[in-house]
Computed example of a mutant assay.
Amino acid sequence: MHVTAVPETVQPRHLIVTVYGLYARETGGWMSVARIISLLADLNVDEPAVRSSISRLKRRGMLEPVRKSVAGYQLSTEAEAILREGDHRIFQRDRATLADGWLLAVFSVPESERYKRHLLRTQLTRLGFGTTTPGVWIAPANLRDTTEDMLRRLDLARYADLFHSDHLAFGDLRTKIRLWWDLDQLERLYEDFVRAHSRRRPRTDREAFADYVRLLTDWRRLPYLDPGLPKEVLPPRWIGIRAADTFFTLQAQLAERAKRHAVMTS
């Protein structure tokens, strides 16, 4: 699986999803438009960009308009499911081990349902699967539950088979991992993340909020590109481990201060 570098400028809609994931679900998944605009202003996103991004998220089925004395938007059922799945991936620190084995996904989709084939490939890529050969996808076995949930939720289970396997022979597994995942590109993305966030020193809760939302927004794509591959098959001194240390250290420092600011913003 080859990944594409993400531009340095984060799209406002990604920031909005992060804000909803952090601060809306505790109160039923709803947030007023005024509060969204105010919180995004702390991230230097202007009102027209916020409104445009909300409309885009609405078209994509992530947000639904719900009025509660004032205009606001509610997370959709699908968005809630995506965020719940993301919680485990984003905040899960433990990596897989070789003893866990591997999860193989094999699928067959009729030509008349090519859109389902595209959806399957997109979702397996999003979960961090690599490809061994066309039609055979591989990931650490600890992604089994997440993969099963995705296949059932999107009504794709009837097209796929999942297998729990071990690599018995032949060839060097480290070499093969580099064929199945683009570790060079992952390393560059991790380096960018560490460089962007390792020197953050917010002085106020407002700055802590802005730093934490950007930290989490930048981090949450990385556990999907790197599905927690076992240390035994990674290069020595793998920077992904340092990047994880950076994220979890900053999360511990920023989360409560950021929440305090978000709660005070109406």
Rank of each mutant, 00 (worst) to 15 (best):
T97P: 13
K231I: 08
S165M: 13
A71V: 03
R144C: 04
P7N: 09
R221P: 10
R67F: 08
A41K: 01
D245A: 11
R121N: 06
R220C: 09
P12W: 01
P134K: 12
R51Q: 10
D100P: 01
T147C: 12
E78P: 12
W180Y: 15
L43F: 02
L75Q: 05
L225M: 15
Y224K: 13
L120K: 08
H88R: 06
A34K: 13
L119C: 08
R126S: 02
L63H: 15
T132K: 15
L225I: 13
E85T: 03
L83Q: 11
N142F: 13
A5V: 02
V213P: 05
W180Q: 15
P134V: 01
R95T: 06
H197L: 01
L22C: 10
E80I: 03
R60G: 06
G86H: 09
A196F: 00
W181D: 06
Q123L: 13
T249Q: 12
A71N: 14
L162Y: 03
R89D: 14
V194S: 00
R93Q: 06
A49I: 01
H118M: 04
R214I: 02
D172Y: 09
M62Y: 05
L215V: 04
S165E: 13
A243N: 06
G72A: 12
I16P: 05
A79N: 03
V213F: 05
L43M: 01
R201Y: 02
Q74W: 05
L173M: 07
F247E: 14
L154V: 03
K231Y: 11
P7R: 08
K259R: 13
R13Y: 02
R114S: 10
T77F: 13
T9C: 03
L57F: 12
R201D: 04
L127W: 10
R237E: 14
P48D: 01
W219D: 15
G72R: 11
P110S: 00
R114G: 09
T18L: 00
H118Y: 04
S38W: 00
D161F: 10
W238R: 08
S55L: 08
L127F: 07
A252T: 07
S52D: 07
L225S: 05
D149P: 01
G228P: 06
R199M: 02
R195F: 07
D100Y: 00
I37A: 02
L250K: 13
R203Y: 04
L75N: 12
P230N: 10
A24R: 12
L183Y: 01
V33T: 11
T246L: 08
A81R: 11
Q253H: 10
Y73R: 06
P227M: 06
R25F: 14
Q92H: 11
H261G: 00
I241D: 10
P12L: 04
E256K: 14
H164N: 12
Y159I: 02
R199A: 06
L216A: 05
F129M: 00
R195N: 08
S52R: 13
Y23P: 04
T27M: 05
V3I: 07
G101C: 08
P65K: 07
V66L: 11
R89K: 09
E80L: 03
A157I: 09
L183A: 04
T132P: 04
A243R: 12
V233G: 00
L143G: 05
M264Q: 07
T97L: 08
R200N: 06
W30N: 11
D149C: 05
L103Q: 10
K116W: 05
D46M: 04
R89Y: 12
R188H: 02
A243F: 06
R89I: 08
Y115C: 03
G130H: 00
I82Q: 11
D145V: 09
L119H: 12
Y115S: 13
